[in-house]
Design a protein around this nucleic acid. Structure first.
Lengths: 252, 252
DNA sequence: CGAATGCTTGATATGGTTCAAATCCCGTGG
DNA sequence: CCACGGGATTTGAACCATATCAAGCATTCG
């Protein structure tokens, strides 16, 4: 078994279990999926647009982003993925990528072959359901990005983004007052649809009014409540259906 | 059977079959799902944020949008749904909505109870797979909206949107040179993250240079190639994995 | 220690917003 | 068939948030 030592998929199972109901047997089946570790350098495309992939990419450490692209060449980050996320679970069901996946910092990943994911999903319908649900939550996050980029001003956008990441970093859905954020200001611009220059100014403002500091690839939140208010942030889109009593299972 | 006469789910099966492989038996199981017809008035919220729903909403005629919202009250349309779409298939697996669903014009829908959708999905894993895949394609469209809103200027955004809808309206994925589009300019603003005033000016420009006309709730494309070029549009994100030879099925 | 990459700041330009008012269009009732 | 009313569209003028361009500074890494 390739993953008897070293990093394993436990946090993938944890993530799924936060949103879906999995039995011990089902969890074990996921844990025993074969994986191959790999290191991705910063700013290297890991999946290119239009490329057909044969494995999913589970993030152990670092950060990856999904990128869309204008013909003119400007890029837009459409999703961020942190340790514990599978960056492209959707590829199981649609292997030709419609956006690129790139590491924002040096990132360690475990590759899981589609073939094996399909096998587990087929053998355990509840696992397929959990995968489906995970993709749906992903899409809900994506909608929020549309709102953020489409309807909020620059300062609010930045604050909202930092709030989202604070909540997503903690695995208990409690906001983290300090968390690693290994992305450059240019990356932040690509996430928010702003210029890196303007990102810089907004970060300075947020720092000056005592809400957050982003330095040395780490976010430090000084005043969560005010940041949340200013960023117009409400964690429901991350949380809904996640509370223990409300998780569902289609079949028993 | 409630749907022996009147509108039925055939176009839902067609939509799924364009992306997934379904057997005759599976298709029939979907066709015989119980439905309840309903009429939704323009600008009425059909699902509110945070509300728990117990059925999906298949669109027979009209147009619906998914809306996100700022505390300040401005709205952003994150997705558009046309006849043949199920606007909230994701709700099967995550019934608490994180965005509102609203009709943009008078819309006829068929409500399909989650309970019954779950039953089919459980009985036919390939149907569950098709549902999952549909949600994934939906998410790919969503990513493109992030790119559109985040990185393109107003004129390009409008052109891109009109291109997307042209392709999505046709059921063979060929762009339609003329198609119904029952949304106001204010709605267009909510889709593109612009002001209705600016939407108006951009539409005028596109008309003046001979690319498209939007009048009386109908789009008429005069020059597809130039519109496509100006809108930086490439239909791959709608098409990928859709060509007959490339459709997949996890199990046989 | 030098080079590259990322960060910071300033000055200027501009695309899109805002506010306000006029006109058009279509459905409705007389 | 016509008059009326209300939403939708159109246009103008002033303003502002963010982009652009350009330069200097700080860090990190080899």
């Amino acid at each position: 078994m390739p993953n008897s030592t070293g990093p394993n998929l436990q946090s993938f199972v944890d993530r799924l279990s936060a949103r879906s109901v999995l039995s011990g047997e089902e969890g074990d089946a996921i844990l025993s999926l074969p994986t191959r570790a790999s290191q991705v350098a910063a700013n290297r495309d890991f999946v290119r647009i239009g490329e057909r992939v044969a494995h999913c990419c589970f993030i152990v450490d670092g950060m990856m982003g999904r990128f869309g692209q204008t013909t003119e060449g400007t890029r837009q980050i459409t999703a961020l993925h942190l340790p514990g996320d599978v960056a492209d679970l959707h590829s199981v069901v649609r292997p030709v990528g419609t956006s690129a996946i790139q590491a924002l910092a040096t990132t360690t990943v475990l590759l899981i072959p589609h073939k094996d994911l399909r096998t587990v999903a087929t053998r355990f319908p509840a696992v397929a359901e959990a995968f489906w649900r995970d993709c749906v939550v992903d899409a809900a996050v994506l909608s929020q990005w549309v709102v953020n980029v489409g309807r909020r001003d620059a300062k609010t956008r930045m604050a909202h983004l930092l709030c989202e990441m604070s909540v997503r970093t903690g695995n208990d859905r409690a906001p983290q007052m300090t968390y690693p954020f290994p992305a450059t200001q240019a990356h932040l611009g690509d996430m928010t649809g702003l210029t890196s220059v303007h990102v810089n100014r907004m970060l300075r403002t947020l720092r000056d009014i005592g809400l957050v500091t982003l330095r040395a690839r780490e976010v430090e939140i000084h005043d969560w409540n005010r940041l949340k208010a200013l960023g117009d942030f409400n964690a429901d889109y991350l949380d809904a259906d996640t509370a223990p009593g409300t998780r569902r299972r289609l079949l028993n």
